[in-house]
Design a protein around this nucleic acid. Structure first.
Lengths: 150, 150
DNA sequence: CCGAATCCGTTGCGATACTG
DNA sequence: CAGTATCGCAACGGATTCGG
C-alpha cells in the first residue's frame, strides 16, 4: 500500500479533545500498550505468563491493566480455558492487527530519524551554543537562544 | 523507495528501553507534542501567542515546556528577535517535518478505526454481562470474560 | 509580549504480597 | 498459572503569579 501524503485535519478538529487522532495517541501513548500489541502481532495467541516473560520488566498488575483496556477497546481477545491448570490466552483482533500499520510507520520513522533526534539532544545538552546556526539573515538580528533551564 | 511491509523488531529489541520505537513513542506520546507539530506543519513560522491561541487550552508553561523539548530534539527552531515588542517565532526543521509521515499514519488509522474502538469500549462498558447490542454494525459482541473453551 | 517560577492535583507506574 | 490488593512515588499537566 502506498503511503498517502499527509491528509491532516484542520485546526478546529485538532483542538477537539474528542479528535480521533488525540484519542488514538492517548490510547497508544502509554508505556506498554504498543509493546504488548507488537508482541501479540508477532506471535499469538499468547499466554499471560508468556507475555510477562517476554516483556520482562512489566509488573503483573500493569500487564493485566494494559490487557484489560486493550480488551475493552476491542483490540485483543481474552480466552479462558476451564482447565485444571488455569490457562488464559490473548489474541489480537482484526482491529488490533490494523494497528500494525501506524505502529510500523512510527517504527520506520524512529529507525530513520531517531538518531538525529538523539544527536540533536546530546548536542543541545552539552554545548547549547555550539555552532549550529540557521544562517538566517535579514529582518532583525536573531539573538542566540540561550536560556538557563534550572 | 520501496514500501517495506511491517519490519517489526525482535523481542529483545522491543524490551530495550533504548529501543528507538520506544523512545519515539515516549517522545510523541505526551499530550501536546503532536498538536504543536501539526500546527507548525500547517503554517510556520508561528509566534508563541499565535500557537497558544491556536491550541486553546494549553497553559503557557506547558507550551513553553513542549517547545523547549522539541527544540532540544532538533524538531523545531526557536528564533528570538531583539525588538522592542518581544517577538519569538517557532519553525519546523526538516527533521520535524519528517514527523508528518508517522503522524499521518496515526491520523489515518484513527480516522478509520477509532469509531470501532469507541464502539467496542461503549459496548464493553454498558453491558458487561447482558447480551446487549448497540445496533451499530461493525464490531462483534465482545463476550468479555466468558469465552471459555475446553 | 514571552516566558520563568511556584504550588498543587491527578494519574500512571512500580514493588511486594496474597488468592482462586 | 493467572491474576488481585495495597501502598506509594514520581512525573505530567493545570492554574496562578511574577519578571525581562
Amino acid at each position: 500500500m502506498v503511503t498517502k501524503q499527509v491528509p491532516l485535519k484542520s485546526d478546529e478538529d485538532l483542538n477537539d479533545p474528542n479528535c480521533h487522532t488525540r484519542l488514538a495517541l492517548d490510547r497508544i501513548g502509554d508505556k506498554w500498550t504498543v509493546l504488548v500489541v507488537l508482541h501479540l502481532s508477532r506471535r499469538s495467541p499468547r499466554r499471560f505468563t508468556e507475555l510477562r516473560e517476554a516483556i520482562a520488566g512489566i509488573a503483573p498488575k500493569v500487564l493485566t491493566q494494559t490487557l484489560r483496556t486493550l480488551e475493552r477497546d476491542g483490540i485483543v481477545t481474552r480466552t479462558v480455558y476451564a482447565e485444571v491448570p488455569p490457562k488464559v490466552t490473548y489474541d489480537l483482533t482484526p482491529l488490533g492487527a490494523s494497528l500494525r500499520t501506524p505502529i510500523a510507520a512510527i517504527h520506520r520513522w524512529a529507525h530513520h530519524y531517531m538518531p538525529e533526534v538523539l544527536d540533536a539532544r546530546a548536542d543541545h545538552d552539552s554545548g547549547l551554543d555550539s555552532g549550529l546556526d540557521s544562517g538566517h539573515g535579514g529582518v532583525s538580528a536573531p539573538r542566540s537562544r540561550r536560556t538557563s533551564r534550572a
